[in-house]
Simulated assay, not measured.
Amino acid sequence: MTELSQEQQIMQVMRQTLTAIIKDVTPPPGMRHPLSEATIQQLRQCLGLITAREQELAAEQGRGGERPYYSDERQEVQLVTFETLKRKPN
């Protein structure tokens, strides 16, 4: 895996910081949100732009397609255990 560029590191920290702020100010269910609707939309736009740029940078490096998956989801890569690679004695 390649090292992250400075721009990628900045994008990553910005995304993590914004999501942490959102988590900190999100009230319990039933309570009024302290942020205005306009601020919420701006946060969504910022996170969307950060994600889009992260994807562009990853594609430029040939790292596209990295995404989470369910453990029972079929993968293109098949896991081979070491036991199957051991030679059988003759």
Rank of each mutant, 00 (worst) to 15 (best):
P28F: 03
L85Q: 11
H33K: 02
P28I: 03
M31S: 08
I10D: 15
E73T: 08
R53I: 02
V77A: 14
S36D: 08
V25R: 02
E76W: 11
E3D: 14
H33C: 02
V77N: 06
R63P: 01
E3W: 03
T26Y: 01
V25I: 13
G30D: 01
E66A: 12
Q12G: 02
E3H: 04
Q45G: 02
R74D: 11
L18N: 04
E66Q: 13
I22V: 08
Q6V: 08
Q75M: 14
R44P: 01
R67I: 04
R63H: 09
T39W: 03
L49T: 04
R53S: 02
Q8W: 00
P34G: 06
M14P: 00
E76T: 04
G62F: 04
Q16L: 15
E83R: 14
G48F: 08
R67P: 00
A38Y: 09
G30I: 01
G48E: 09
K23S: 13
N90V: 10
R67S: 13
V80E: 13
N90P: 15
R87T: 04
V13L: 12
I10L: 10
G48T: 05
D72P: 00
H33W: 07
Y70S: 14
G62E: 04
L47R: 12
S71P: 04
A59P: 01
Q75D: 14
Q75P: 06
H33M: 05
T26E: 11
L85E: 13
E60W: 04
A20P: 01
L49Y: 07
G64T: 10
R15L: 12
V25D: 03
Q8L: 01
E7K: 14
F82L: 15
V25M: 05
E54P: 00
L35Y: 02
E56S: 11
E7M: 11
R63T: 00
S71C: 09
L57G: 02
S71K: 10
E76N: 13
P27V: 01
V80M: 10
K23V: 05
E3M: 12
Q41V: 03
Y69V: 09
E37R: 13
Q75L: 15
Q16C: 04
P89D: 10
K23D: 14
A52W: 04
E56F: 06
T17A: 15
G64P: 00
Q75Y: 05
I50T: 02
R15A: 15
I40E: 11
E7L: 13
L57H: 01
A58T: 04
Q6R: 06
I10A: 12
Q42C: 06
T39I: 07
S36M: 09
M11P: 00
Q6I: 05
Q6M: 06
T2G: 05
P27C: 06
Q55L: 14
M11I: 09
E3A: 13
P29L: 01
L49W: 08
I10T: 07
V80F: 09
E54I: 07
V80A: 10
Q41R: 12
R67A: 12
E76M: 12
H33D: 10
A59I: 07
E83K: 15
L43W: 08
I10C: 03
V77T: 11
M14R: 15
I22W: 02
R63M: 14
Q78M: 14
M1E: 09
T84L: 06
E7Y: 05
A38F: 09
V77S: 11
L57D: 02
